[in-house]
Write a protein that binds this DNA or RNA. Structure first.
Lengths: 207, 207
DNA sequence: TCGTGTGAAGACGTTCACAGCT
DNA sequence: AGCTGTGAACGTCTTCACACGA
């Protein structure tokens, strides 16, 4: 994990949640909000929320609460939502093309600029609107268009190989949807999302 | 969270990972594996792995390691992978229908038995092969087909309402893809997967 | 000697409780 | 009085280090 910032990963996730809650409050015309109110909306303890927010500096007014707009722009800055971030997606199979059709990333400030697949013909058949390239063109593409974030949806057995190429080409963050555990240099960040594990986990905890 | 079991949530996630790593090892004909080897494959510390495994009982042989097959069946039992689990999906919009096309849940022992959407006509146009119903039929369906797990992909503003109906109809675990924070009775388990937050998080930690 | 199982230590994250500002 | 900011207490998770069995 990068040593640049002292904000823990868990806090960053919560800050995203706070931001979304603030958006709703702002839509309702609210101008200030107390830690208690915002905490309830975000499903956390109010002192945790206060502590999380002090990572951004001191924005609150004692006796009053936090100014909604100011807090939101502080969050946007920390979360790098200020500008559109380009992202590539590797592995346009079932899950990959599913994610491409899903427009949620775009809405949150990310633009998927290209997709790569080893079997470009099958991938084409899925009728996607994003520029689609063969795996072989990955290195070329990244040389011409430096992109720092990649979404990885290839089968587990290819995940490490593709990862190595991504890292060599300068990608610094990988959102890994394959069930594989990736080995990367320690300045590269990997977030794994394992959909099957999430269901498995639920299935364990119900009764 | 259910009090039935003393195994922490984080451990359950790791057990899923160990299981997948063991599958690979078993394919290669390995019969026993040491904590060190398996830990490396799973990307964790070896004493953590040993501690996690003792939640299942004592399966290892000192000086030798763990018997691969035995350990796998112990894991299958704990993770409830023994039998196919029925699941419903609510919200067949962009993300929902994307997940339906993705066959990964099926592969891991879950069967999506039905999908629900408020706008059944638009949803039909997406050409899905799973039985598709209107939201109104949710309660009826669950009365006739008790299902304990639901995947929730509706927009944030409808998430709490749908959740309430799911809970009333007997659903006990919800995999929540909407960015909303859900309020549920404490015997109901919710796992949230927020795709945009995952990218945001990466984007924060790179440099 | 090799590798598990585990108490103890340490790191990390959360909650409490209250001083101090408005 | 209301609410933030924060040290201190508490709890949880991870790692260490070593006794003990094969």
């Amino acid at each position: 994990m990068s040593e640049k910032s002292a904000i823990p990963k868990k806090v960053i996730y919560r800050l995203s949640t706070y931001y979304r809650c603030l958006q709703r409050l702002a839509e309702n015309g609210l101008e200030t909000v107390s830690s208690g109110t915002l905490a309830k909306a975000a499903g956390v303890n109010s002192s945790q929320l206060r502590k999380d927010i002090t990572y951004l500096g001191q924005w609150g007014t004692r006796g009053l609460g936090y100014p909604v707009e100011t807090l939101m722009s502080a969050l946007r800055e920390v979360l790098r939502q200020e500008k559109l971030q380009p992202v590539i997606l590797v592995g346009a199979g079932n899950l990959g093309s599913a994610l491409l059709r899903y427009q949620g990333f775009q809405k949150e400030g990310f633009e998927v600029v290209a997709a790569f697949d080893s079997d470009i013909e099958s991938a084409r058949k899925r009728g996607l609107e994003i520029p689609l390239y063969s795996d072989d063109e990955l290195d070329d593409f990244l040389q011409k268009n430096p992109v720092r974030l990649a979404i990885l949806c290839v089968p587990a057995e290819f995940a490490q190989g593709v990862t190595n190429r991504l890292v060599r080409a300068g990608v610094q963050g990988i959102l890994n949807f394959s069930p594989a555990v990736l080995e990367v240099p320690k300045d590269i960040v990997v977030n794994r999302v394992d959909l099957a594990s999430e269901l498995e986990n639920l299935s364990f905890f119900i009764r």
